[in-house]
């Protein structure tokens, strides 16, 4: 099996990012994912459930390719299959695992 080169690290420590409220962007009506409340692994996919049912799906397609789907409704539905993408089967990853660290961090490793 090809050596994996992907490591996914989830940090559950609470910290404020520098300048998080000082971006100069109008935030009044904007929707953001907010905090992660839970996550679920299914094969090579990890779905993060965030606040207000916002969900993020990370598909680890290969050791060097990931797919990111950010869905405020958490439905992951699209009206048409991709017109451009014909192959999502890359080498290097068979599944995704998570390991927690003592610092409450969790690693997700592809194998």
């Amino acid at each position: 099996m090809k050596l994996y080169r992907l490591l996914l690290l989830v940090c559950f420590t609470w910290f404020l990012l520098p300048g998080a409220t000082g971006t100069g962007m109008d935030r009044s009506e904007d929707i953001r994912p907010g905090n992660i409340l839970a996550y679920k692994i299914d094969g090579k996919e990890v779905v993060f459930t965030c606040e207000n049912d916002f969900q993020v799906k990370l598909s680890i397609l290969g050791s060097d390719v990931i797919k990111v789907w950010m869905d405020p409704k958490g439905e992951f539905m699209r009206s048409n299959p991709s017109f451009a993408v014909v192959n999502e089967a890359f080498e290097g990853i068979e599944e995704v695992n998570i390991q927690e660290t003592p610092q409450a961090m969790k690693y997700i490793q592809g194998r």
Binding site: L9, V10, C11, F15, I36
Partner: peptide, 18 residues
Amino acid sequence: MILRINARPFRLSIFDKY
């Protein structure tokens, strides 16, 4: 690639193996 997800708030960061 190394992926790091900050949980609070959600933030995706991607690093190389170094």
